[in-house]
Design a binder for these strands. Sequence first.
DNA 1: CTAGGGTTAG
Length: 544
Amino acid sequence: MALYLCRKPVPCTSLCYHLFSSFTSSSYSDPGEPEEQPGFSSTDVKPELPTMQPSTDADMVSQILLQHHNPFHATESSLQLNGVILTPNLVHQILLRLRHCSKIALAFFQYSCQYHPYYAHDTIAFNLLIDILCKVRQFDVAWQLIIQMDQEKIGNFTKPNFTTFYILIRRLISAGLTRQAVRAFSEMHLFTEDDEKGNTGEDFSEFHICFLLDTLCKYGYVKLATELFNKEKWKLDLNVRIYTILIYGWCKVKKIEMANRFFREMIDKGIKPNVVTYNVLLNGICRRASLHPEERFERVIREAEKVFDEMRQRGVEPDVRSYSILLHVYSRAHKPALSLEKLKMMKDRGVCPSIATYTSVIKCLCSCGRMEDAENLLDEMVCNGVSPTSVTYNCFFKEYRGRKDVEGAMRLYNKMKGCGSLCTPDMHSYNILLGMFMMLDKMGLAREIWEDIKASGVGPDMDSYTLLIHGLCEKGKWREACEYFMEMIEKGFLPHKITFETLYRGLIQSDMLKTWRRLKKKLEDESLTFGSEFEKYHLKPYKR
DNA sequence: CTAGGGTTAG
């Protein structure tokens, strides 16, 4: 962690060196065609992370890389990729497709740095890779990439920016490393230039502190956020946004009294709450409230209505989100009649239901077995110009799973896959179906889903593997479970402890010591020397 | 993913 403190001195690790030397090799000075890059330039525009877009090239490359799912085969893959010309956009799309496989993503990045240097790797690509690595807690490698970016500043568009630190800090916090996150935050200004938001000084730091507090709150570290806030607040220009963030934080950890305290504090300071603040408070009251005995449900509704009344008194009109929060409560309490009534009421008041609103009501109807009503509402929303998303369809899948209705689930699944469908299945859809078929011992269908997941390019993810492995364990198919377990490790997933324990017990109890030893060796290879292993295979390709 | 609403299973 000493790395954090030094900017200019070069704490180059082997990985760093390697990437560095590939950038400074002869092809680096090649004129190339750097100005033809679409989508970004060396101006001060803050780059965003790209989103997944259809791209046959990216599909092809990522499929090739995934087929050699052991990243140590990077050289083999590169032979097949010889004719591919990497553009920055293609690199982004490939990295997005490899985002669940950190090791392959890193191997690919390293390969592409070597063979396609100079312009194919912009800050966005670095940021994507940093995100992928941080997700599996490879913070050291992420830092090395940041330092490398800082030292290179290739063509002036590969340098760490606010997004880089946003990603790093968010991942550090999500991993519980809040102290390191705060430290990274305080050192961020050494790496980034303050031109990203077009302003400097006070406003800029306030913009940043909002982001830090917000991230801390989102992951439940509201106490630390409050401490930082109290320490800094005398020099901040307090506004409704920063208070809303803290209120959100206290609501998230179910301390409504604390949320109310900050709510009063902001009013005392003359800062007017807006509709966002009220919705945060409303959500705090409703989101995780226990609804089990009828009286509790009624109490929650009463309190929610009280907030609605107060909003109107202060001249803040409830919006779609306010109603969606309320409808979510009805949905959780399984109150289809009240749910539909409220939906009508909001429409009468001129508030247009959104996808979230409809999804809440549809979820309610589905979970109460009123599939036909749910389908009618689905038609209605389409008529009103609101397209269902996979989230909406997942409500149906969940109900089909509950009813063990394989036929219904497959009918909807094929409808989603078919042409003219409004949305395609997402990882949740796949995982619900996969879990359902594993539970019902429909291995054929489970395999079909598994192939579709692989073909979709967005998975399998951690949950898919977990579901599949747990399902196989339940059926006593220990060897197959073990294969998938090793496959997921090779792809860079960190399995749950329970998955490992289940497999371990099964293998031992059924006397499969040979398989067990193979697994143990794999774990030793991968985790005990994980960090150094990462750097090693960047220096020299793995030999079989 | 940059102050707020809808989904999995464990």
